[in-house]
Amino acid sequence: MTQLRLGLIGAGSWALAAHLPILEAARDDVEFVGVCRHGGDALGRIKERYGFRVASEDYRDVLAAGADIVVIASPTADHYTHAMAALEAGAHVLCEKPFTMTAAQAWSLVDTAERTGRHLLVSFGWNFAPMITRTRDALAAEGIGTVEHLAITMSSQTRELLADTGAYPDASPDTAPEQATWTDPLKSGGGYGQAQLSHALALALGLTGVRARGAFALMAAPLGARVELHDAICLALTDGGICSVGGASAHLGVDGNKHHLAVEAVGSGGQFTVDVFRERVSLFRTGSGQQDLPVTPGEGAYDGGRAVRRLIDLALGRTTDNPAPGELGARTVEALELAYRSAASGLFETVS
């Protein structure tokens, strides 16, 4: 195969900012076949700008045109339908986060990808960052034992976006984000948990391999927002450990709009700290002591293009390494689903 036929479903602001520039730079490997989004004027401009052969408001037209790889950046409520159709059509799939609205949907996609023999990736950008893959490899070589305590903290500049008073600073300036994608619970599934803590959970769960079995959560929606801006979550883990998750919508301009994100895990045989804001990774094992992994300045910044590059490499057989598979996406959805159930009920919710 000399070129991969590309289908893009959901060519909104984030796809224009994060995905299309990377795909355009990979034109030697990628043929722009089909694009889908709502809004005929914007759709026409994108078709002309990038040279897609087919442009339609119906995702089925994109798949019918033929696609080897499909990037899905539609609203969260549509991810399951679009990803399932793309996998069944024989495409390798990169799905934006949050992966799906429910854990049942997520695990169904995992099963389908396995049955069809297709690669399924979730766009958890930090999981592809070199500082994180080095940490993953170091933990694979010598872990920290059974995870007893996991702490996840995150804040990012989503205050205006989620309160419907402004845009996300990393959005494309050419196409304004459709606010309902983020602030209508029927489309988004929630607020900061879905928009940002999905990233933080993917980072932590990807490094540790843990899975949530229960949650108690408090969520706050100041500024009259329809979705929550802040989260405080306690998770019970299947291996007996516990996890605290804190997420906050920060003000625009804080620390140059760089995300604050840190994960600390304490296990039976050691512990580690990963801080992408301070760009630091520290490992401690009871047998060998402490080790600080090298981190190049700038590695902690979010890069939404890494997942697209990996989709291309996986589809072309250049690598078999997928740092953000559907299975990891499903575990993040499980944890968030429990958290939202708990915030609604006021009770400790467990996997049914």
Rank of each mutant, 00 (worst) to 15 (best):
P177R: 08
D255M: 13
D174A: 10
T135P: 08
F32Y: 06
T153W: 07
T319D: 00
E178W: 11
L120A: 10
L283Y: 05
T319E: 01
D111T: 10
H92E: 11
T350F: 02
R60W: 02
L293F: 06
A26T: 00
F128W: 13
A55L: 02
V274F: 07
C243G: 00
D29Q: 15
G214N: 00
P177S: 01
R134E: 04
Q290D: 05
G66L: 11
P21T: 02
E57F: 04
L314D: 01
T76E: 01
E31I: 01
S156F: 08
N257H: 09
G7F: 12
S288Y: 07
D174F: 09
R53I: 05
V281Y: 05
G329R: 10
T81C: 00
H230R: 06
L223F: 13
H119Y: 12
A248T: 14
F128H: 15
I69Q: 02
A339F: 07
T181D: 15
S172V: 11
L347E: 14
V263Y: 08
T350K: 12
Y59W: 12
R136S: 09
L20N: 11
R331Y: 04
Q179R: 15
A220V: 10
F216M: 11
R310H: 09
L139S: 03
R159L: 15
S56T: 12
V281T: 12
A77G: 06
Q179G: 04
L207C: 07
T238S: 14
S156N: 15
T76Y: 03
G125I: 01
A324L: 08
G253Y: 11
V351F: 08
A307K: 06
H199N: 11
S108I: 03
F284C: 05
P222M: 10
I242C: 11
L109F: 05
P75T: 09
A315W: 15
P173K: 14
L205C: 02
E299V: 05
A91Q: 13
I144P: 06
V54N: 03
V308K: 05
V35H: 10
A163S: 15
A86M: 13
E349F: 07
L314Q: 05
A212Y: 09
R37G: 02
V210T: 14
T2V: 15
V254T: 09
A220H: 14
H259T: 14
A204Q: 07
P323Q: 09
S155W: 00
N322L: 06
S123C: 13
P177W: 08
T208I: 08
L6S: 01
A11E: 02
N257F: 00
Y340E: 03
T112K: 10
L23F: 10
M219Y: 06
G270Q: 04
K97D: 02
G300Q: 04
P98E: 15
L316D: 11
Q194L: 11
M101T: 07
E299M: 00
R53F: 03
G246P: 03
G224V: 02
L316P: 04
V110S: 01
I233L: 06
K258M: 09
G224C: 01
T238Y: 00
P185L: 07
G300N: 09
V295W: 06
P98V: 14
G7K: 13
T133M: 01
M101Q: 13
Y340P: 07
L162C: 09
T135R: 05
G166M: 13
E48H: 10
A330K: 07
E88Q: 14
Q291N: 08
L252T: 15
G7I: 00
